[in-house]
Amino acid sequence: MADDSDLLLEVNDLKMYFPIQKGLLRRTTGYVKAVDGVSLSIKKGETLGLVGESGCGKTTTGRCIVRVYQPTEGEIVFHDEGEAVNLNLLARQELKAFRRNMQMIFQDPFSSLNPRMTVLELVGEPLLAHGIARGQELEDRVAEMVNAVGLKVEHLPRYPHSFSGGQRQRIGIARALVQRPKLVVCDEPVSALDVSVQSQVVNLLQDLQSELDLTYLFVAHDMSVVRQVSNRIAVMYVGKLVEVAESEELLRNPKHPYSETLLSAVPRPNPHHAMQRLSLEGEPADPANAPPGCAFHPRCRYMEDICQNEVPELTELTPGRHVACHFADQLQLQGIDYSASIQS
């Protein structure tokens, strides 16, 4: 991987298995392998987009990184001012203090805010919890943060019920950023919002990133939004990464058949766009019962015998581009054709 000095986060072989329990005795009959061996690294100040369809494990990956879940296996190493901190080795109290560095923005602007707390209480809570500020200082810092996300000081005594979805998402962003984290996991931060509000929030996240020197893991299913915010994109399918690449490179020239179909499926707001869609048969595999070999093989148009038996490893094809496909270097896949759209 890239040289260590500008790395912020390294995830090595992360696994998160949820047991399936059945019967009176809660015997474990199997596991939902939500995340099954994910390795990735995020550089300081960059945005890594994590895309995939529902159930592919992208949200679980994000939640493991901020330690909402205790992962089943794997290492999460945080590079904090020249020091490598292995989150698995932190004691409870140390982890609690370390949480300042990693925050999360949630998808649902309704359920992620306690309806019984005012904006001041919501945004101020992390400061209180870490003993960063109290009293007037707390109020000042909250006011400053609330201004930064585009809300006003007079909003502080209000309760969440008086805000629209977009405004609530701003409150959620203020809560996540008020303690000046280094890494923010954005879990589908705009997908529950109205179209006209989505772009506002995307812009806000980008502005705040440069102002506050933030690093994002941007988890989403919408390829166009992910591409807008990300420097690099990681594509996930049934618990595993299938491709990681610099974002424009991935769009123009996908190397994994799943990335190809995912790009092709994005509906284009352009009625002249010729229907050259690759039709993708079937549905995503069940992470409790993934097919052997490459999990994508039942839906893959380029499937060969080897795909049914051997799991392809995520390997570096060219510098900075990792693909998990047996035929990554042979396939000629179709990406986004920019020449056509620029003419029209």
Binding site: Q103, S112, L113, N114, E125, G172, R175
Partner: peptide
């Protein structure tokens, strides 16, 4: 989510 958020906030 809001309890998760609180937990993540420390």
């Amino acid at each position: 989510d809001f309890t998760v958020a609180a937990r993540v906030s420390g």
